[in-house]
């Protein structure tokens, strides 16, 4: 599998990364280098092997249903690059 510039542009779009065309070119070759390196995994026989879902042999802990958090809009909004009152703001979205 080899990525070309167009494929890189598509992935960059998916990842919301602005990437100039010359950078896309370089990125394609870097990614191909990495992909050819990881290609060696295909040689491993993984028939009947379960993919790992958790490295620690433990069960998911469940918490109680109680209100223990929230009610601190300032803590939530303080670092916002832009806000209006208690709202975050973003460039207008047209649905």
């Amino acid at each position: 599998m080899s990525l070309d510039k167009a494929a890189v542009a598509k992935i960059a779009k998916l990842a919301r990364l602005k990437m100039e065309p010359d950078r896309q070119e370089a990125m394609a070759s870097e990614l191909n280098r990495i992909l050819s390196f990881v290609e060696e995994l295909q040689a491993v026989n993984t028939d009947n092997v379960q993919p790992m879902t958790s490295v620690a042999p433990m069960k998911l802990r469940q918490r109680e249903d109680a209100v223990t958090d929230g009610g601190k809009p300032e803590a939530v909004l303080k670092n916002a690059p832009q806000r209006q009152g208690d709202f975050y703001t973003v460039p207008k979205v047209i649905e």
Binding site: Q84, F87, T89, V90, K92, I94
Partner: peptide
């Protein structure tokens, strides 16, 4: 997202 609060921005709650 609230889209009708401002002409240029959407508000996020």
């Amino acid at each position: 997202s609230l889209h009708d609060q401002s002409p240029r921005e959407s508000f996020i709650d």
